[in-house]
């Protein structure tokens, strides 16, 4: 790891100021992605701004028909939150299947969503539930947030402060883990909310994406039978030693059907 200057601000405002003042600075939430990256010398920030002491960023609230989760909220807290379990059990389930217990004790929703790893789980939930990402300066709808491989709508120095998930009538997440890393090789989040049916796929492509054909079919008939003949083209999907594009495309179908069945249970 290269050395850097460490900061531990107590407020979002102070954190944002630090990040704005130091162009080579990086924010750190749980550090579960950032620290491994630094250890491998794949990044060389001048400053690390640890959000660990920013109290206002943590916590889970129910606001009307929405579950609002602070950016610094740990995966373990989402997984075990009675509020999340009651409102959107699929989201708690997803959080409970990220990494291992130690990763869940430190990794955060804001860090995960900001990082937008193509194999991360949360982006599936954010898109399928049509969540809204709130930053220190604005609100970004899910469909506009994820831009591509490790790319998001966040500007330099912009911090995710919370994410607001509309409650779902039905929802489920099915993850097919990469056998080695256990990140999502294919993860499908299916949700029926006030704004309709959404099917979001993570792991399979360079960035989370929706499957329109499935959404349309499920809007008419929310059953796995309705999507059994919908095939996903393999073109443009990820391919590596654990899964060819063709295999991933196939798994999207399998996981989507299983997710629908689970959502109907």
């Amino acid at each position: 790891m290269y050395d850097f200057t460490y900061h531990r601000p107590k407020s979002v405002a102070d954190a944002v100021k630090l990040l704005k003042d130091k162009p080579e600075a990086r924010a750190m939430s749980g550090g579960m992605t950032l620290i491994p990256t630094l250890k491998q010398r794949l990044a060389r920030p001048s400053d690390v701004v640890d959000l660990g002491a920013v109290k206002e960023l943590s916590g889970i609230k129910i606001e009307g028909a929405n579950v609002v989760i602070g950016g610094m909220t740990k995966h373990a807290d989402v997984a075990t939150s009675a509020d999340v379990k009651a409102a959107i059990p699929a989201l708690a389930h997803l959080a409970g299947h990220i990494g291992d217990p130690q990763v869940r004790n430190r990794g955060t929703i804001g860090g995960s969503v900001a990082n937008n790893d193509p194999a991360a789980d949360y982006p599936g939930a954010v898109v399928a539930l049509n969540a809204t990402v709130t930053t220190n300066s604005r609100k970004i709808p899910a469909d506009e947030f994820f831009k591509g491989l490790f790319e998001t709508a966040l500007a330099d120095g912009e911090l995710i402060t919370s994410i607001s998930f509309p409650k779902a009538e039905k929802a489920a997440y099915m993850k097919f883990p990469n056998p080695a890393s256990r990140y999502a090789m294919v993860g499908v989040f299916v949700a029926k909310t006030a704004s309709g049916v959404r099917v979001a796929v993570t792991g399979a492509g360079g960035c989370v994406f929706r499957v329109k054909a499935m959404e349309d079919a499920l809007a008419k008939n929310f059953s796995s039978a309705a999507i059994k003949d919908i095939n996903i083209p393999a073109d443009g999907l990820n391919s590596d030693i654990h899964g060819s594009a063709e295999y991933r495309a196939h798994l999207v179908g399998v996981m989507a059907r299983r997710a629908v069945d689970a959502a109907n249970k």
Binding site: Y6, I35, D50, G52, Q102, N105, R106
Partner: peptide, 12 residues
């Protein structure tokens, strides 16, 4: 909390 001490800075 159970954590991986290789993935947390001493200062944290």
């Amino acid at each position: 909390k159970s954590v991986k001490s290789c993935t947390i800075l001493a200062v944290q």
